[in-house]
């Protein structure tokens, strides 16, 4: 499996990175080096092996249905690059 410029562009788009066209080729090379290297995992027979999603082997702890948070709009907005009338403000989205 090898990534080309178009794939790099698609992945950059999914991850929301602006990448200049002249960077696509070198980046494809870097990613391919890493992907080629991790490719060695295909040597291992993993048929029937359970995938591990967490090393913690107990079940989820549940919270009670109580309102214990919120009511801190100033704190929530305190780091916002832009806010208006108590809202976060972002460049206009055209639907």
């Amino acid at each position: 499996m090898s990534v080309d410029k178009a794939t790099v562009k698609r992945i950059a788009n999914l991850a929301r990175f602006r990448i200049e066209d002249e960077r696509l080729e070198p980046l494809a090379g870097e990613l391919n080096n890493i992907l080629d290297w991790i490719e060695q995992l295909s040597q291992v027979d993993t048929d029937g092996v359970k995938p591990m999603t967490s090393v913690v082997d107990h079940a989820l702890h549940w919270r009670a249905d109580e309102v214990t948070d919120g009511g801190k709009r100033d704190a929530i907005l305190s780091n916002a690059p832009a806010s208006e009338f108590g809202f976060f403000a972002v460049p206009k989205v055209i639907e």
């Binding site: 993993t46 092996v49 359970k50």
Partner: peptide, 12 residues
């Protein structure tokens, strides 16, 4: 091919 495989390796 990648993520699921890696999770299985993690088990091993």
């Amino acid at each position: 091919a990648y993520y699921l495989k890696a999770q299985k390796l993690r088990t091993l």
